[in-house]
Design a protein around this nucleic acid. Structure first.
Lengths: 118, 118, 118, 118
DNA sequence: GTGGTCTAGACCACT
DNA sequence: GTGGTCTAGACCACT
């Protein structure tokens, strides 16, 4: 299931959001598939229900999932454009910082390859 | 001088570290050049001396600068290998996340170009 | 609990770091044990939370503890190699100074015995 | 002449004191030998005269040198007992810390040998 | 509740 | 003048 790293500095709810988006992209969840309930997921991942709630709420605001009160949480028809735009911003910022830190274009390209060739 | 964005989510001391590294990479500061004193820089940037101190201390731990209490802060013979390795990690993580978020390799390459061609 | 000497020339945060490492070595804290919270320890030791934070942050940089913001501070799987190397450097420097100050090898050996025989 | 390291965290005046004591121990300076004047030494070492003054003053308080107003600074009949006792304290403290940090007796002995065998 | 960031301000050692 | 330590206190994000 979703893998989280409690030792990481990245907030748990952010990790969880990324994992869910990843699973949707991998096709594990299709449109209208149900996601685990807040309680169930919290128990399974041994984290605070508030943390799951926060992740779900954020994903809902991005239009990635929707909640049907009394029924549960479901995956939306996949429109990942907001997620996309955010990812672009993050990549852009990371690359700009890397350039300022003296990284060469060739280095970045080799990292890009290592990530996308695997 | 160093440009900071107080409204950014990124801590001021982190922004300051990046700015200083950038300036060193640009050749503005050479080995053994003095950096502005903690107090002077704090006044100029309208931030607290402790915040400047924190940035300087972190840069010192990365071996980028050295500080002589009573004399000031100086740029080290530039060994940016640790900074390099950190930048690599950050870029790697950002790209992995972007891939998981559904970003295509072509998209990243175009971002890489936009950053390095400027 | 941890004993500190506010009149010592040694900074409180350094004393605190040494005390914590000592306790870990004594087996008082095992891997993943929680350390007292920043606030709790500050109150108990009658020092400022920032001072505790500083000690914790340094120990984290040495890989001895890890901290999950929102959850607490925990002992890492004990890899004390960096601490070891630092202790070696300090001992080496102290002995070299002692030799230069005219101390005889026999004297040092008797000090070594007095420390390790207890 | 005396070697100082401006990058070290150890105050310059302390380094200077140690160097002078070392030279006396090595027999470079005998009883009643003149030491360089404050000004001359400050110029030669490119440091602040106040720093030299401070070192001389401390050595005088330890009975290691004496100043003859109008004549200069001279080495005393060598009674290094206070220096000795201080070195002992420092070594003792360093070894106690090292023990608490998990260092084994055997390790220390090998360090002792490496320092005294050379 | 938890730790992280930042400010304001004091005091100290060193040059 | 310089940086280092420490306190007091506010505010924020995360669980």
């Amino acid at each position: 299931m979703f893998s989280l790293d409690s030792r990481s500095r990245e907030p748990i709810y952010v990790q969880l959001e990324k994992e869910i988006v990843k699973f949707i992209n991998l096709g594990v969840y299709e449109a209208d598939s149900p996601l685990p309930s807040v309680r169930a997921l919290a128990t399974e991942l041994s984290i605070n229900p508030n943390t799951v709630s926060k992740a779900y709420k954020n994903l809902e605001q991005h239009g990635i999932i929707y909640t049907s009160p009394g029924k549960g949480v479901f995956v939306n028809k996949t429109d990942l454009s907001t997620i996309h735009r955010e990812a672009e911003k993050i990549v852009f910022a990371a690359l700009k910082d890397a350039k300022n830190a003296g990284m060469e274009k060739a280095e970045v390209l080799s990292i890009v390859n290592s990530v996308w060739e695997e």
